[in-house]
Design a protein around this nucleic acid. Structure first.
Lengths: 231, 231
DNA sequence: TATATATCATGATATATATCATAAATGATA
DNA sequence: TATCATTTATGATATATATCATGATATATA
């Protein structure tokens, strides 16, 4: 299968376009020797809260969820990370241990780079430092923006947001297979599972979407966008 | 008054402990020549959404709010920044224009440092780069944490959170003068103004707090913390 | 000082959302 | 295949929250 095609040299990695574009061959070789790629199956946990942080984690392929376990066992999903996202947010600079847990919601390939190497490269390679921070800033900014987007809306607007997120930003198609359960959608938008299901049914009855289990197709994009806009 | 005591040399700035602690005298002189301190009176706007970003902004003294104006004129407060916080979040690296507006909620002194100087220093001074990113990462992380803290709670828990925030993190005292209106509290925790007032009254009737206009005193910290914990 | 305007306050009511209950459908597992 | 657990689904009910209305204070402004 596609995912098993391992990239063995950073130089040939299609994701080099990211913050690593301006690295010299020497620097790339250094990363290459200390990096570690691993395939995680859907549902597999990649890291847990309170684990020591030793690597910079970069999502090559797949989809993962970043979440926190609340005191009452409930999980709260902070964000869904896509390929090319660094996962684990900024904690890598401001914390010694992971603040969030990460689990694959689709088969995913994660590339681990020793954090000391990255820090050292920031120290010695100014251009890389800037490139790197531009990228991770953008990811952190987008997490904050997403949280605000969700929290300033009510149920219908939030569901519309999620549907548009998957269709436009993740799968780039009006038809997609929802990679998370209704319960997880609820954990992502701070709503009860029942209401997530209810609103999806409503949208189906109103012919805004078509649902068959996990398969979702957006039929009336304009109306969905209107629901999102109105909140 | 205290705030009018201007610091004219970065070398003597009491906030040098921040990310600038490891800078050489030469680097400090460079910043000193290109920096700009300004006092803003309570209510004065420091910057607006969509303005081009040209400076790194650092809060020396006072208190400011970071907010976004929604389509329907409603303002949504993202965070309250305290002295030593860099304000404006990470947008400075990932955006050309301000994403949020900033207004002083107490008389505040903001120090502006030319963004190019900072970027250049990141490029040329590796130790500074790391120090700097540790700090701004911590601020961004704390904004995300705050948003989650607020959104996973309901009305009572949110109000408790806000009261504890001001008492513990901002004023370091159980007795303080709330620097923002009830309406602004509502904008900060995504609730209606009436309900903010109502819950504050409730807490007063239950002898958890004492209120006299803006003056608030926490009488029963344990109970308030319990309300916060239970959400 | 008088007048306007924003803030604070509280009750009544409407609305949104969560919770509880129950069941069918699906998926996992022995 | 049979059994169990999870997910999806929907209705009824309870609860939380917003909205509307109205008045009292406080604050700004002419």
């Amino acid at each position: 299968m596609e995912l098993s095609v391992k990239v063995n040299n950073c130089k040939d990695c299609i994701y080099r376009s990211w913050a690593f574009k301006n690295l010299s061959d020497d620097d790339l070789r250094l990363i290459n020797n200390k990096k570690n790629e691993r395939l995680y199956r859907k549902g597999e946990k990649i890291c847990s809260e309170n684990e020591p942080i030793s690597s910079f984690m970069y999502l090559q392929n797949g989809l993962v969820k970043l979440y926190k376990t609340e005191s009452n066992d409930r999980e709260h999903i902070i964000s869904i990370a896509r390929p090319k996202d660094f996962i684990g947010l900024l904690s890598i600079f401001s914390n010694k241990t992971q603040v969030y847990s990460i689990t694959a919601i689709e088969d995913s390939v994660v590339c681990f780079v020793d954090l000391e190497i990255i820090k050292n490269m920031i120290k010695t390679n100014g251009v890389f430092a800037i490139d790197f921070f531009e990228k991770i800033s953008a990811v952190a900014d987008s997490v904050i923006k997403t949280r605000i987007d969700i929290n300033t809306r009510q149920l219908r607007g939030r569901i519309a947001y999620i549907l548009l997120l998957f269709a436009k930003q993740i799968y780039n198609s009006p038809k997609f297979s929802l990679p998370i359960s209704r319960k997880e959608v609820a954990e992502l938008i701070d709503m009860s599972t029942e209401n997530v299901i209810r609103v999806l049914s409503e949208f189906r009855k109103d012919k805004i979407i078509q649902i068959e289990g996990k398969e979702i197709e957006i039929l009336d994009l304009k109306r969905l966008e209107k629901i999102y806009d109105l909140g």
